[in-house]
Design a binder for these strands. Structure first.
Length: 162
DNA sequence: GCCAACGTTGGC
DNA sequence: GCCAACGTTGGC
């Protein structure tokens, strides 16, 4: 409409002991392999675009928390680990013709002060955030622009400065 | 370690 | 296409 590029916001979960934020900082960028859920795959395949912002979330730790802000730097392409028999993410149904699973690359942008799940739950301005919904367990999920800004603020980062 | 909430699989 | 059994996620 106004010639502006539409930017979207996402939250991606990583288990702290599998791939922590500190590792992404060290690597600078990484490919988000191992997602084996169709809903999450479809988001990566269809919706995530270069330049989209990502909240990097640590799950399976106490407390679970948002640890940093990342950015999509490569759009959806085949998750090659699905075709690697040596990989723990191997899927015999994945082929070069039909890769079945998709990943994106993300790039570390900015660390924030850890914002714990209890804090997130306690903040009224985050009402309706998918992460906080009962029973949700999608490892890649949408975040509204407003919620993204609030979470950054809670972590000591003014998202306007990104 | 428990278990609620899903998602997937496969027999019918 | 239903649905029971099973597997996984992930907070607690």
């Amino acid at each position: 409409m106004h010639g502006e590029v539409m930017v979207n916001y996402w939250l991606m979960k990583s288990e702290l002991d599998v791939y922590p934020w500190s590792q992404l900082v060290e690597d600078k960028t990484t490919h988000w392999d191992g997602v084996r859920n169709y809903q999450a795959r479809n988001i990566m395949r269809d919706d995530m675009k270069n330049g989209d912002w990502v909240l990097f979330y640590h799950s399976n730790c106490k407390p679970p928390h948002v640890a940093g802000v990342a950015k999509v730097c490569k759009e959806g392409y085949p998750d090659f680990t699905a075709q690697d028999p040596e990989s723990k993410y191997f899927d015999e149904k994945a082929t070069p013709e039909n890769p079945r699973w998709i990943m994106v690359d993300i790039e570390a942008i900015k660390e924030i002060e850890a914002v714990g799940l209890p804090e997130l739950r306690a903040n009224p301005s985050l009402e309706g955030m998918p992460l906080l919904q009962r029973g949700q367990r999608l490892s890649v999920q949408p975040v509204s622009a407003e919620h993204f800004a609030v979470v950054c603020q809670m972590g000591g980062l003014n998202s306007n400065c990104l």
